[in-house]
């Protein structure tokens, strides 16, 4: 499989603190890469850099061999879904989804609407196209936000802790949608704290700590027998020992 994303020696600083320190990685077409790591390790910042929301202080980010213009200009091959969904509150679900394809890509409105309805049906929101974001639950908003990103036909989808702000019972409905995308062969980079989900969906797990990649392995290996002690410690924070004798 050809490489879709290539990150070479990426360095990102906020003032004096180095958030991403010499990160290099590749993502092949059709691959699902899950990025794990403790809070503040730089994993969200990595996605934001790839999505051109941050300027970078060193290295390069190539998508399909093309250097992304850092600091503002967006690459249409990348789509991103955020933790806080951020639908546009003044537009209905359908308008939220169709605005960018119609205005940015200048696609035919009727055709875009048909596709939007098709995608909404797929994520179980067919009856919500006329609703406003404030009328939806967190899980429904996040699914609509995923559709809004999908309709732009990005080649690489970035998910930044998309279930972190949701009530537990809504996490599943969102993760099911992402699992479905994986089955369709979409290329994705996923930052998450849902370990079961990470294990189920990942082709490869990358663990970042202190701005560096400390381990990169297939999920079976990473979750059962990681190479590094740091990864082992990290995974242990998700399990509890019984207090009963």
């Amino acid at each position: 499989m050809p490489e879709l994303l290539k990150v070479n020696n990426l360095i990102k600083r906020f003032g004096d603190s180095t958030v991403l320190d010499d990160i290099s990685l590749t993502v092949k077409k059709g691959e699902v890469v899950v990025i794990l790591g403790p809070s503040g390790c730089g994993k969200s910042t990595l996605l934001r850099c790839i999505n051109a929301l941050e300027d970078i202080q060193g290295g390069e980010i190539l998508i399909d061999g093309e250097n992304i213009l850092t600091g503002g200009k967006h690459n249409s091959k990348v789509g991103m879904v955020f933790q806080s969904y951020d639908l546009f509150p003044h537009l209905t679900v359908l308008d939220n989804i169709t605005l960018a394809p119609c205005k940015v890509q200048k696609r035919d409105k009727a055709q875009v609407r048909d596709e939007a309805r098709e995608l909404l049906k797929r994520v179980g929101l067919f009856d919500k196209e006329k609703s406003y974001p404030r009328e939806l639950s967190g899980g429904q908003k996040q699914r609509a936000a995923i559709v809004r990103s999908l309709i732009m036909h990005p080649e690489l989808l970035l998910f930044d802790e998309v279930t972190a702000a949701l009530d537990p019972e809504m996490v599943r409905e969102v993760l099911e949608v992402i699992l479905d995308l994986a089955k369709q062969g979409k290329t994705m980079m996923i930052v998450t704290h849902e370990m079961q989900f990470a294990r189920a969906i990942a082709d490869r797990v990358i663990m970042i700590d202190g701005g560096k990649i400390i381990e990169e392995n297939p999920p079976e290996r990473f979750f059962t027998n990681p190479d590094t002690e740091r990864a082992r410690q990290f995974l242990n924070t998700f399990t509890y020992e019984s207090v009963r004798a």
């Binding site: 999505n51 051109a52 929301l53 503002g72 967006h74 249409s76 990348v78 789509g79 991103m80 955020f82 806080s84 951020d86 639908l87 546009f88 509150p89 003044h90 605005l99 960018a100 205005k103 940015v104 890509q105 809004r148 990103s149 732009m152």
Partner: peptide, 25 residues
Amino acid sequence: QHQYESAQSLGFTPLQTKIYIVIPQ
């Protein structure tokens, strides 16, 4: 800030972001 970032991620230019997203709100 996230409204601007979402708009940027969808490829809106700064002017389009103002016209379609900021001003109506």
